[in-house]
Amino acid sequence: MIADWPCPAAGGIRHERALVFDRNRTARLLVVPPLFEEANRTRRLLMGAMRQLDDAGIDSLLPDLPGCLESTAPFGEQDLDTWRAAMATAAAHFGATHVFSLRGGALVAPTHLPRWLLEPVAGAALLRQLLRARSIAAKEAGRVENGAALLEIGRAEGLELAGYRCGAGLIRHLEAATVSENSGTAIIRQAELGGGALWLRSEPADDPAQSAALAALLAAGIAG
């Protein structure tokens, strides 16, 4: 269920973890988690879908992004390039044949395999939401923080956003990053899963019906 994989890191290799349903089958789906808090909110959705894919005869592999979830890598040293390199390495290490990502995961998911993106989002939209959360929290604490000024600081020296110490590189990458949609990319909309988006939910939640719908979509797509 938990596997190690060697991830490129500053000064060598760091062992990262992945949640896997791995029985050495032909179809092997790399699941790229969404970024920031959305990774926690959608963990159970993804695990439920992976369990169903396992029943459908499809292996799936959900690596941690370095600095996120169980990873011990420093978050502040990560940017979209380190995450892209990490996901490309995980895809190669596990021999992934297909890719699925959710929301901001689309920004770092490998592009050379057939892939499905659930509600992909541009980096600027994620960044805007994080900056907004910080301004609101500041206002609540009686301080005034202006989004544009914060962004200026973030670009130069990094910024703490929603509890994540983001490096300047990550801020700059997020500002510019858009989702690349090549011919091997299929977009899945939330409406296709039925029910409200779990990545929006203020408390992490579960929805077995959505997990089943997602797994069915992916299994049908992989079967081609």
Binding site: Q129, R132, A133, R134, I136, L200, S202
Partner: peptide, 8 residues
């Protein structure tokens, strides 16, 4: 409904 949820 914390600050992150309000932002969302």
């Amino acid at each position: 409904l914390d600050s992150m949820a309000v932002a969302g």
